[in-house]
C-alpha cells in the first residue's frame, strides 16, 4: 500500500530558520551567513571587518567549527560577544543548521546588537543547503584556490548574495587567472558583487564595508 507523504526532508530546519528570521527581524538585527572552503582566510577577513564596523555597528559572532575554539578566541579579541559552536556534538556535522543558531543566539543579548555574523563551517558544499534564518549569504574565496571553484560548487555561488575574493596580494606570485574566476562567478550568479581584498594586508575593504553597512542600516529601517 502506497501512502502519500509529500514532505520536504529539510522541513524541520526550514521551520526553525523561519523562527530565527522572525526573531532577528523583531530585534532589527542583520544576520550575515559567511561561508567558504577551509583556509580561505574567513576568520582574518572577519577580524578586519569587525575592526571597520565597530563601534558604529554593534556586532556579535557565532563561529562554527567541527573542533577547536581557535577562531572564536581570535574573534573574541575584537571585543564582540562570540558564541563558539563545535558541530562534533551533533555528529561532526559539516554545516550549521537552524537549531544550532537558535541555541547559540539564546546566549547573546539580542537587544544589544545590530549585526550578527555567522561564521559557518569551512565547506563549500553543505552549508549552502541549510537556511539558518540569515538575511544575506557571503562566500569567501581565495586566489590560492582554483579559478573553477564557482563551477565546482554552483549551489554555493548561486545561493550567495556577494563574494569576497581574498588574498589578492598574492597574485604576483601565482599562476592565477583572476578574470577567469570572475567570469565563472558571473556565469553562476550574474550580477553578484565581488569584493577583492587582502585580509592580511588590510586592503580593498572599503566597498565591502560600505555594502555591509548599507545592508545593516536597511534592516533597521524596515520596521
Amino acid at each position: 500500500m502506497e501512502i502519500k507523504v509529500v514532505r520536504r526532508v529539510l522541513d524541520v530546519n526550514e521551520k526553525m530558520a523561519q523562527q530565527n528570521r522572525s526573531l532577528f527581524t523583531e530585534k532589527e538585527i542583520f544576520v550575515l551567513n559567511v561561508m567558504s572552503s577551509p583556509g580561505s582566510g574567513k576568520t582574518t577577513m572577519l577580524e578586519r571587518t569587525l575592526s571597520y564596523v565597530l563601534p558604529e555597528i554593534r556586532s556579535a559572532v557565532i563561529a562554527g567549527d567541527i573542533c577547536t575554539s581557535n577562531d572564536a578566541d581570535r574573534l573574541a579579541r575584537t571585543g564582540v560577544p562570540v558564541e563558539q559552536v563545535n558541530t562534533d556534538e551533533f555528529g561532526g556535522d559539516c554545516h550549521l543548521a537552524a537549531h544550532v543558531i537558535e541555541k547559540a543566539a539564546s546566549n547573546i543579548d539580542l537587544d544589544d546588537i545590530d549585526l550578527l555574523i555567522v561564521e559557518n563551517v569551512g565547506n563549500l558544499v553543505c552549508p549552502a543547503e541549510f537556511d539558518i534564518g540569515e538575511d544575506a549569504r557571503v562566500v569567501v574565496l581565495s586566489v590560492t584556490e582554483g579559478e573553477d571553484k564557482p563551477l565546482k560548487y554552483p549551489l554555493m555561488f548561486r545561493e550567495c548574495n556577494a563574494a569576497i575574493l581574498n588574498k589578492i596580494d598574492l597574485l604576483p606570485y601565482l599562476e592565477y587567472n583572476k578574470n577567469s574566476t570572475l567570469k565563472n562567478i558571473q556565469q553562476i550568479n550574474p550580477g553578484m558583487p565581488v569584493f577583492e581584498i587582502s585580509a592580511t594586508k588590510n586592503t580593498g575593504f572599503d566597498p565591502w564595508i560600505e555594502w555591509l553597512k548599507n545592508k545593516v542600516k536597511s534592516k533597521q529601517k524596515k520596521l
Binding site: M1, E2, V6, V9
Partner: peptide
Amino acid sequence: GLIDIISGRELDITSIEV
C-alpha cells in the same frame, strides 16, 4: 542573467510503501 530555478533543489519524500 535574471534566472529563476524552477526545479533541481528538491529533497522531498513523496510517498512510502507499506
